[in-house]
Design a binder for these strands. Structure first.
Lengths: 349, 349
DNA sequence: CTGTTAGCGCTTTCAA
DNA sequence: TTGAAAGCGCTAACAG
């Protein structure tokens, strides 16, 4: 039995306050409020009333210190400003906040140092789990993660990653795009890849060469150009591709940003899309809440849609599952993509 | 002087572990590590070495319990999926993470119950401050907030709000739009408002009527139609506006989503934009990383840009300032908007 | 300059 | 069925 120190300050009431109020011990209050352990029904009611009346709410901090569980998770994201990420985050949020977890959201800006600092800070805060969205996990980060709470990777994953992973079916995506173009008669198809350090980019690139081979199309030198997912890299790539002979009749861009910049470049150089060149994107980043077309009705980008929201939900669920049973078998979840044929692809001239 | 309980488990080392390792008291370790208080330089070095070697990191939780400060802030957002919000969040993140705060990001989905639950949970976690982005603050939420940590409002604010606020200059935005249209010869201008519960929407609406009066334009009945910021409301509003006689020659939409849906509707009904009707948006939601135009080069929406990133930064700074000096004078920060003239406005026919 | 002590608010044995 | 007591890991006042 303890006395609260001062009664004048208007601070959050603690268990001690309630205990005093009811003339009971803190232990009894704890039992009554948590519902576990025996406590006289009348007193229990009394305690609940007092708690409600005084507006008592348990301190998450104190509980966390005691139980070593914080009911919080960390989410690492490259850049919240890139429209595909908020969708994923939303999916994660939907499932984890239903499980009463709160999210620490952190931007890494594709910066390994920041990534490391953020993981440290998350561990210092003792998050119960971590989700890394499209992160290239550095060795240092990896090392930290190993001794930390469960984590799941979304989109990207290191070469031989043994843990939980959720990602889109990149091979399927590339196949959908290529079959569409092949069906339109395209044979000279170029590909602007993502950065080599992105596993997703590598997977797509490999799928591209494999699928082209399967379709019996050769890939002339210069048709594979490396970009970095930034719009600006599309401009350089497009320039290089226009210089190729023979010139490609279709260009697959690493993502929608790059695709749009390619289209801009082509326009500036007197080429019409899709008449003179077919161009496709990746992600369906701009769709947002619109169903069929892009913001402006004029023209829509042919692209392949990743199930972004679902990626987030799956990741959230995978993490919850892992936190519940740390030694359950590893899960790898690959979700199907869907092709959206719009206005930037046409039969090969 | 204390003994650590068990030494086999590979857990995070605590101060006690370091103290034992160095044969010193925890207090000394604490002083050495925190840098405050005197401690023998040699021992200090020793302690730092041990800490580094053992990979010691202070527990944020324990510190928070002791100091009652968590170095975390809560950010409430309506829907992270709406492209204007990530920009704001990014701005907040930039400044607060530089100040070593971590962000709890929470979606409220414009739902008052969720808003309340989230604020409760944030208070339970003892965040040091809260930023509410575009929230209609319910009375219950308001009451909670009053006894909580400092908070700042962004975009929306309740009728008579006495606290810190950061928002765009809505009057300026409307003026820019109207002067542009007026200059093009438009006189019959309609306005699709945002929902009445949004203070931002109300401010814009009031500015609209005021400005129209100033320009000497009357607002025929039916020219002011209430929407709710959702694309779909643009459809209904457009339908209503087409039925007006005389028909307006220009439509101001509450935001870009609504504007696009209006344009879609007009197209479907055989009207060309901007030839037959000028349409403007609000927010420049789609700009993202592109400078001049919308995703596709075909056509860009004439709209007024809110300084989203800057709104976030200002809010972050205002919160930091408030946390540092809780009784500094209240700050109201209004940031200028900029008009982006693109392809959906033209001289009145 | 260093150690002892108390305590943040909660959970959880262990006795009574 | 209840209370006493210990302790999560840290900070800070105080004594030495």
């Amino acid at each position: 039995m303890r006395q609260p120190r001062d009664s004048t300050a208007i601070k959050r009431p603690t268990m001690t306050d309630i205990a005093c109020e009811c003339g009971l011990s803190r232990a009894t209050v704890a039992r009554a409020l948590s519902g576990k352990g025996y406590v006289n029904p009348e007193r229990k009611a009394l305690i609940h009333q007092a708690a409600a009346r005084m507006g008592y709410r348990a301190s998450t901090i104190a509980r966390a210190l005691r139980t070593q569980r914080t009911s919080s998770i960390g989410v690492l994201i490259a850049d919240i400003t890139n429209p595909i990420f908020p969708e994923i985050v939303k999916g994660i949020d939907e499932v984890v906040s239903a499980g009463d977890y709160t999210i620490f959201l952190c931007n890494t800006d594709e910066d390994a140092r920041k990534q490391l600092a953020i993981i440290r800070s998350l561990l210092d805060r003792q998050v119960d789990g971590i989700i890394l969205v499209s992160q290239t996990v550095s060795d240092e980060s990896q090392a930290l993660l190993k001794n930390g709470p469960p984590y799941v990777l979304v989109n990207r994953r290191p070469a031989r990653h043994g843990g939980d992973y959720v990602g889109p079916d990149n091979a399927m995506a590339v196949r959908q795009l290529l079959e569409h173009l092949y069906g339109l008669g395209h044979r000279r198809i170029a590909y602007i890849t993502g950065p080599a350090q992105s596993s997703t980019a590598r997977e797509r690139r490999d799928s591209f060469t494999a699928e082209m081979a399967r379709l019996g199309c050769s890939i002339p030198p210069g048709y594979l150009v490396e970009g970095n997912y930034q719009a600006e890299s599309g401009r350089r790539a497009a320039e290089a591709l226009l210089a190729c002979t023979p010139r490609p009749t279709a260009i697959l861009a690493a993502n929608d940003f790059v695709a749009l910049e390619v289209i801009s470049f082509l326009h500036e150089h007197g080429l019409q899309v899709p008449e003179d060149m077919s161009v496709t994107g990746f992600d369906d980043a701009f769709k947002m809440r619109f169903s069929g077309r892009y913001p402006l009705p004029a023209q829509g980008l042919t692209t392949v849609d990743q199930p972004k929201r679902e990626l987030g939900r799956s990741a959230g669920n995978a993490l919850l599952a892992r936190m519940a049973r740390p030694d359950a078998p590893v899960r790898t979840i690959i979700l199907p993509t869907t092709l959206n044929i719009r206005d930037t692809t046409a039969p090969a001239g």
